[in-house]
Amino acid sequence: MLRVLAILALAVAITMAVQYNPGYVVVVYPPYRAELSLSLVIVMLLAVFFLAYGLLRLGAHTLNLPDEVHAFKQERQREKARSAMSEAVAEFAAGHYDKAENFAVSAIELGEDAEVNALIAARCAHQLKAFDRRDAYLAQVDKTCSDYPDTGMAG
């Protein structure tokens, strides 16, 4: 409400200032000549400024659009991976080892904490007595941990 009153007061003040402004601008481009009121020229210059500013902002936003789309897609993939990991943990806790293993594998493929999800999948495969899959998941954990020798997790 206060903003509306401030805008209306500003509009009234500008109208009163423009009404009593006797200045004019003469634009000459032979053979043409144009006389414009100073108030109209000021309004036109402001309009041109804001139009140019808007076009520059639109151009900058358009140039940044591919990066924003890429960031959006990456964030959406991270959300899917987090969701798959939380579903894997929930299904594992519920004792649904086949579903938990599938969710853990999905989370690994989406790039979410490969070590943790591989351990969940290995534990699920062990509970399902699929020892070959369990060993493959554990080998994946061992390979991932051996890539980071300073963590003390390898060997």
Rank of each mutant, 00 (worst) to 15 (best):
R78Y: 12
M153G: 11
H61E: 14
H96P: 00
C124I: 06
V26F: 01
A47M: 10
K80M: 12
A139H: 05
A125H: 03
C145H: 10
T15L: 07
V25Q: 03
I42V: 15
E35I: 14
Y29A: 11
L2E: 02
E91V: 06
A118S: 12
F72I: 02
A154I: 11
E115W: 11
L2Y: 04
R78A: 15
I108P: 05
A100E: 03
A90Y: 09
E68H: 13
A9I: 05
A94Y: 05
L8Y: 09
H61W: 06
V69Y: 01
A139S: 00
V116Y: 12
R133A: 09
R133S: 04
V141T: 05
L2D: 02
R3D: 05
Q74W: 00
D67F: 10
A17P: 08
G155R: 15
E115P: 07
Q74C: 02
D142C: 10
L65R: 12
Q74E: 14
Q77W: 00
A71W: 06
N21W: 08
A34K: 08
I120H: 02
E91H: 01
A90V: 09
A84K: 09
F50K: 05
A60M: 01
D98S: 07
G111A: 06
A125M: 08
I108A: 03
Y24V: 09
Y148M: 11
L2H: 03
A122F: 11
A84V: 03
L128A: 02
E35G: 07
M44L: 15
D147C: 14
A94D: 08
F50Y: 09
L38H: 14
A114V: 02
L138A: 05
T151W: 13
E112A: 05
R33D: 07
E91W: 04
A154W: 13
